[in-house]
Computed example of a mutant assay.
Amino acid sequence: MTGLTDEEIRAVLAAAMGYDNRRPGDLNVAAWQEASEIGRWTLGEAVEAVHQHYATRTDFLMPGHVTQHIRAARRTAPMPAERQLPTAPPAEPERVRDFMAQIRRSLGWTQRATTASDPELDHVCPHERCRAGKHRPCGYRLTRGTHQGEWRAIKGYHHSRTQAARQETNR
């Protein structure tokens, strides 16, 4: 963090001028700016420190007073409340399906129903994880969890199986 700018230091000194009639010059601004960098002041904290100082004390305000007040205020400031996002119950499966269908439609993805007469079923699926035999649906074997090793069919066919069927019909 850098110290306050010249204009900000002048604003802090202007607040002090209202109390003690000081007449700061460029050298004062430079010195206070250096102190603001060392003390890591913010403009709001520094101006508040000036007001707090003169509300409770009568001695001439120095940069050290400002730094002391800022540090004390930071130590006693309440910690921000821990933010917690509101939790919602998990979405129902029907809602998830409807939402995913809406996304597919908005992206222009079409999903055709599979039938026993599909040309893809006349070919072994070349997809590495599938390798479904002729007349068998495409899918994958689960590799983790309590259902490890189970076969799960997918809707439609792997792209490589569809390509193989197209090549065969184009011959």
Rank of each mutant, 00 (worst) to 15 (best):
H127I: 07
R57P: 04
Y19I: 02
R83M: 13
P89A: 10
H53Y: 05
A153R: 12
A46W: 05
R23D: 04
H158E: 01
R75K: 13
Q167S: 00
T114W: 05
W32M: 08
T162G: 10
P80F: 02
A11N: 04
R152D: 03
A153C: 06
H127V: 05
Q111G: 08
P78L: 14
H135T: 14
G133W: 08
I9P: 03
V96H: 03
A30Y: 07
A88Q: 14
D122T: 14
N21I: 08
R74P: 09
R136P: 01
A77L: 13
Q68C: 01
E168I: 05
Q163V: 15
A14I: 03
N170A: 04
A132W: 03
R141I: 14
D118K: 03
E120Y: 01
T56F: 10
R105W: 04
A165I: 09
M62I: 12
M62F: 06
P119I: 02
A11Q: 13
T2Y: 12
R141G: 09
A30R: 10
V96I: 06
R144F: 04
A46G: 11
I9A: 03
G39N: 12
T58F: 05
A14H: 06
T110P: 04
T42A: 07
M1G: 15
M100S: 12
A132G: 00
M17F: 11
R171T: 00
I70P: 00
G18Q: 07
N21E: 07
L121Y: 14
G18F: 01
A164T: 08
Q84D: 10
A116I: 04
T114K: 09
E120C: 02
W32S: 12
G108W: 09
A16W: 11
K155G: 09
H53L: 12
E94R: 05
S160F: 00
E7S: 13
T5Q: 08
E128F: 07
G108L: 02
P137A: 04
G25I: 14
R112F: 06
P86D: 13
R22N: 02
E168T: 08
R83A: 07
T56Y: 11
P86V: 14
T58A: 10
W32V: 14
C138T: 05
I38K: 14
G156D: 02
N21H: 06
Q163S: 11
E7I: 09
E37V: 12
P63T: 15
T114C: 13
T42C: 04
Q148M: 03
F60C: 10
H147M: 15
E128Y: 06
T162W: 09
A101S: 08
P78T: 15
E45I: 05
A16V: 09
A31Y: 05
T67K: 11
R171F: 02
H159R: 09
D122A: 15
C138Q: 02
R166G: 00
M62D: 09
I38A: 15
A101G: 07
Q33K: 15
V12N: 05
T56P: 00
W151L: 08
E120F: 03
Q84Y: 11
E7F: 08
A11W: 01
L43H: 12
K134N: 08
G139K: 01
K134D: 03
